[in-house]
Each structure stands twice: as C-alpha cells, then as structure tokens.
C-alpha cells in the first residue's frame, strides 16, 4: 500500500479549465493550457542523485530550468526539489517510468505537481508587458532570461514561472494552483486583451 503511479491513466485526466465560459484571447499573446500534460516532481536530499542516475540533467542552481530531449523541461525549485515537465505531451512513458523508478528510493519523495498545479504555456513578444500587469517581478525580455525561474505571485495567487526556448522562440511556463485555474486563465486573458 502507499504507492500508485500518479502518471497512470493519462487519457482520463481532464483540465479543470472550462474554456466555454472564458473569452478567447484576441491578442498577440498566445496562451495554451498544458495542465494535463505529463509531469512529475521529486524532493529530498536524494533527488539530484536519483535524477542523475536516470540520466536527467538538472540545473546547477536553484531557481533555474533547462530543456533536454525534445519537449522536456526540468525546473530546479530549491536545492532538493525538481519538477520535470513535458511541454509537448509526447514524453509520457519517460515520465511514468521515472516516477515508477522512484519507488522505494531513500531520501526521495515524489511530488503531486501533476495534479496540484495547472500549467500554461505563454508566448508572444508582449508577454513581459502583460505580466507586469499581474506580477511584481520584472519578467521583461531584457531581464527575465531563458532558464530563469521565479516563484512569485501572479494575479494574487502563488505561481512558478520559468522561461525556456524552442526553435529560437521563447516561451513561458506558468504553474499555479490547479483549483484556481479558471480564475487565473480569465485574469491573464483580461491582462492580455490590450495586446492586439
């Protein structure tokens, strides 16, 4: 008893975001709900060694992220906490296997970030300006670099924000309380509306 794979039944996951009641964005900023895309988190003093042993590269410092393989992003949220995210939803088997491998490993605790946090992927040249309307941290292109992670408040709820790049195009991943996903989507949609 005590261990079942949170990566199980991916086809039954359903985002709590109801886009039927949300105004669509008519904006140069695009926002995609990636909440059901596979991801897993690990914490504990054995986490870094575990990931290294499973050939997952990790950022050297806390509050950094990196991309590896195609569509996989690793966030280092503290010295001993890591989240692994599939941005294209094509790496489910890898993540599920990694989660299964964590079973029984000492000093390693699996996190429930798949189900505790919503995830938005946000792109567009005005993204930084839009975030300035909802976040007190400077996320402008000049200041917020690829690989940076900030753990802050967005529209008054706790959020984790990181910037990554793919095909020479920067994008932002935002993780926030899954129960607030509808509220946050609408707040960001509202903040984005002026950027036509």
């Amino acid at each position: 008893m005590g261990f079942y794979n949170l990566s199980s039944a991916p086809e039954l996951r359903k985002s709590m975001l109801n886009l039927d009641t949300t105004a669509s964005i008519h904006s140069s900023i695009s926002m995609k709900d990636c909440s059901v895309f596979s991801r897993v988190g690990f914490r504990g003093i054995g986490a870094e060694a575990f990931l290294n042993a499973n050939k997952v590269p990790v950022p050297a410092k806390p509050n950094q992220s990196l991309s590896f393989q195609e569509g996989l992003v690793v966030l280092r949220l503290s010295k001993s906490e890591f989240w692994l995210m599939s941005t294209n939803n094509q790496n489910h088997e890898f993540i599920a296997a990694l989660e299964a491998a964590a079973q029984g490993v000492e000093n390693l605790y699996r996190l429930y970030c798949q189900h505790s946090h919503a995830c938005f992927l946000i792109e567009g040249q005005d993204t930084g300006t839009m975030f300035a309307k909802v976040c007190g941290v400077d996320l402008s292109a000049q200041t917020f670099n690829v690989g940076d992670v900030v753990q802050t408040s967005v529209a008054r709820i706790s959020a984790i924000v990181t910037k990554q790049t793919q095909d020479d195009s920067d994008y932002i991943l935002l993780f926030a309380d899954i129960a607030s996903v509808q509220y946050l989507w609408e707040a960001l949609t509202d903040a984005s509306a002026e950027f036509a």
Partner: peptide, 14 residues
Amino acid sequence: GRIFSPHRYTPMHQ
C-alpha cells in the same frame, strides 16, 4: 485597480 479576487473551484464545479 483591477480587482483580483482569487477563487477556487473543485473539478466537479461544472
């Protein structure tokens, strides 16, 4: 400013 009133829904809200 714009009023931010965070609120939480359960997955069964709809």
